[in-house]
Amino acid sequence: MKILIIEDEPALASSIEQYLQQDGYLCEVAPTFDDAMLRSGAYEYDCILVDITLPGGSGLDVIRTLKREHSKAGIIIISAKHSLDDKIKGLEIGSDDYLTKPFHLSELNARIKALVRRKQFNGEQRIDFHEISVWMDKQEVQVNQQPLALTRSEYRLLLYFLANRRRVLSKESIAEHLAGDEADMLDSLDFIYSHIKNLRKKLVNAGAEDYIHAVYGMGYKFSGQ
């Protein structure tokens, strides 16, 4: 899977690259507008991350060009501008998602996965992890072929974990993923404990292994070992 990162901040671009590479993605970085136009015109990508403000031009123009050329790549805008207008404009000209800086890499990763899945396997969208299977289209979870009823929060939590397997997810990133980044629940991230606790209990009771591990002081990790 190939991803183009159009981002002029080398440090941020390298973080994204590093994080995504660990998931087996092939990443390329385009730090300028011209570079972005050149690469996106010459190669096929599964997903393109676009920063709006670029040296030499606007990321929005890159998206317009891509759309004009009927590119099949999923497009996610990563912008420091937090405004509904920009978001709406971005989505209108054909981007698939919009993420405001600063964001969590785990959130970006989950969005990329969801987007690519939506684009490439429309219809059958199934995620398997050992004995756990998730049907995205029906929002159904099975453990050992037995359906498992989860609340919406638990379901989203499970998907988030599955998108970021073997990664340590910070509590903050989980909280923001569940409640949105405007929630400003800094003083109490406690609410995620009960959701994690419930999900864990339900999975284990249904016969799954306990994959959710607390990483002391850091967050949680969903992994087989």
Binding site: A11, Y19, P102, H104
Partner: peptide, 9 residues
């Protein structure tokens, strides 16, 4: 955004 991403790594 850079700091946050580095922390996450």
């Amino acid at each position: 955004a850079i700091i946050k991403s580095k922390i996450e790594l």
